[in-house]
Amino acid sequence: MLCKRIIPCLDIKDGRTVKGINFENIVDAGDPVELALLYSGQGADELVLLDITATVEKRKTFAELVKNVAARINIPFTVGGGICSVEDVAVLLESGADKVSVNSAAFKDPGLLVHLKDNFGSQCIVLAIDTKCEPDGEWYVYLNGGRTKTDIKAIDWAKQAVALGAGEILLTSMNNDGTKNGFALDIVAQLSNHLPVPVIASGGAGNMQHFSDVFLKSNADAALAASIFHYKETGIAELKRYLHMQRIPVRL
């Protein structure tokens, strides 16, 4: 049976893993290659590496890091952060990434998704959406690392992006991110029930029950978390045994 995936996320700044709360207050969380190896050894199903510096000169450093990770880990990984063009993606895939995630640039120019699909195939194109629930009860797309609000609803953008070429959706709830109060079940359910591609839930994981909640109460295909793993609050092997006991299909 196809398993639900557990995906640790590494935010990378200047070659180090970092972690913020509600996208701010960034602190150091270790060497990315060592963390990547630790997580794959513990049974992570996939990894995500996000370059949160993403300036032109730092890009080259990140591509080098991607090469090191690709040489040493034996599971798939996605990279993202500031990707704007077919050339950016080509460099990262040639460095050994399995998939890339695009965010603001695809929103500003949806044609980018078509170009990426035509050049590399949908299977390696992950669309990242940062979303926030506003007082009107609707979930809107935010851009530029959560700094810029748009008037477009997450579900509408996700549907359009899949039609254009996105092969997977990485959905981060800004309301939940860093809070450790659980995933945003309503918007994750809404997207995962209505899209023909896998949805990765992100933002809010604070304990093992939050993972079983998101898998039992939505059709999420994967759940992503960072600090819960970085600070060793929850081990991946322990989490997967817990999910297995709840009859959720996981790779043990």
């Binding site: 049976m1 196809l2 199903d45 599971i75």
Partner: peptide
Amino acid sequence: LKVPQVGWNDIENCRSVLFEGLKEHEYMY
């Protein structure tokens, strides 16, 4: 079900030298 299939699924009825030393229902990506 979603298409393409993305992720880890198990293999069974394995009968080839390729699978020597691997358990039945091993997960592959």
